[in-house]
Design a binder for these strands. Structure first.
Lengths: 169, 169
DNA sequence: TATTGTTATACTCTATAACTATA
DNA sequence: TATAGTTATAGAGTATAACAATA
C-alpha cells in the first residue's frame, strides 16, 4: 500500500507551481475528501487490518480466520451455513476457508447425527490453543496500540458508533 | 484496563438445543467479536459503501470514482501518479479507472507541456456538473441518513477518530 | 539511468448457478 | 420439493514486472 501523508496543507496552491514536476514534494489537498465518512472509514479499516496481520503474524491468522475461530468457539454445535452467514461469508466461499483451517488442524467438520447433510464445526485442541494465543497477541499488541492512539475511552466510543452503523444503517 | 476479556458465555448453551436444525431461528452469539475493532470496522464500511451507492445510484458513481473526481477538482494541474498515490491506488490500476471516467466524459487526460510523459487530469464540464450533483446527493441523502443514526456531533467525532487511525496507526 | 503511463498477469474477495446427498 | 455442502466460474480489487516514450 502507500504512504501516511499527515502533511499539513496550508493554502500554498498560490505558490508558483503551474504543472506536475514543478515541485515534486508538494502534497495534495484532500479537501472535502477528509470529511467523507466512507473514505476515512476505508483508509482506517486498511490500517487496522494491516496492524492486525502484523500483530498475529506468528500465528499466520487473517482477521477473517480469527473471526471464524472466535465464532466457532462461542457457538458450539453450529453448522457451516450458520457460522458463515453470521460473518457475512457466502457458503461457497466458506468452503476453501474451512479447508484451510482444517488442513492446519485448527478446526474440524463433524457430520451431524441429526441431519446428515450438516457439518458441525468445532475447534481442535490446537485450534483452541492457537485462538488463546491469538487473543493474547491481539490484546497486548493490537488493542494496546489502538489505545495508544485513541485512548481506551475513545476506543470504546468508536466501537459503539461503528456497531450502530453496522446494525442500523 | 484494556478489554473485557470475560465474555459471559451466558449459560443458555445448556438450553435444549443439541444440534443444528434443532431450532432454526436461534441467533448466534457474537461474543468477543462485537468488541473487535477490525470486525465492526469492516462491517460498518460495507454498510456505508452500500448506502453511498444507493444514494448516488442515479449518477452511477462508486465511492472510489467519487473520490477521484473530488481530488481532481481540488488539485488542478496534477498528473495520474499524484492523484492515484494520494488515494492509495496503484498506478497500473488507475489506468482502467480513468479510462472509464474519460469514456463517460467526466474527466480528461491532458499531455503536460512541461513533461511530456505526464498526463494532467482535469474535470470536464460534464464532470463538474456530475460532481456537483453527487455532492448534493451525498449531503442530503447519505450524510443525512448518518446523522439520523449517530447525530451530527457524533458523526464529526467518528470521522476525527477514523482519520487519526488512518494517519497514525 | 530514472520516471510516466501502460500492458500483462496473478492472487484475493466476492457473487451466482448448479451439482450431490440428504431430508 | 427443499436444504447443506460443494464445485465451477466470473467479476471486482489489488499487487508486481516489464515495456515504450520521455526526461
Amino acid at each position: 500500500m502507500t504512504v501516511s501523508k499527515t502533511v499539513e496543507k496550508s493554502a500554498e496552491v498560490t505558490k508558483s507551481r503551474k504543472d506536475a514536476g514543478d515541485n515534486p514534494a508538494e502534497a495534495l489537498h484532500l479537501g472535502e475528501l477528509s470529511e467523507q465518512l466512507g473514505y476515512v472509514l476505508k483508509r482506517a479499516q486498511l490500517k487496522v487490518f494491516e496492524n492486525f496481520l502484523r500483530c498475529v503474524a506468528s500465528l499466520q491468522l487473517t482477521p477473517a480466520q480469527f473471526s471464524v475461530l472466535l465464532l466457532v468457539e462461542q457457538n458450539p454445535g453450529r453448522n457451516q451455513t450458520e457460522i458463515a452467514s453470521t460473518l457475512g461469508i457466502l457458503r461457497p466461499n466458506f468452503v476453501a476457508m474451512l479447508d484451510n483451517l482444517e488442513s492446519r488442524d485448527l478446526c474440524a467438520r463433524i457430520r451431524s447425527t441429526n441431519d446428515r447433510r450438516s457439518h458441525i464445526l468445532v475447534l481442535t485442541d490446537k485450534g483452541k490453543a492457537v485462538l488463546t494465543r491469538a487473543k493474547k497477541l491481539v490484546a497486548t499488541k493490537h488493542e494496546a496500540r489502538l489505545n495508544e492512539v485513541l485512548g481506551a475511552a475513545n476506543r470504546e466510543a468508536l466501537i459503539a458508533m461503528l456497531s450502530k452503523i453496522a446494525n442500523e444503517f
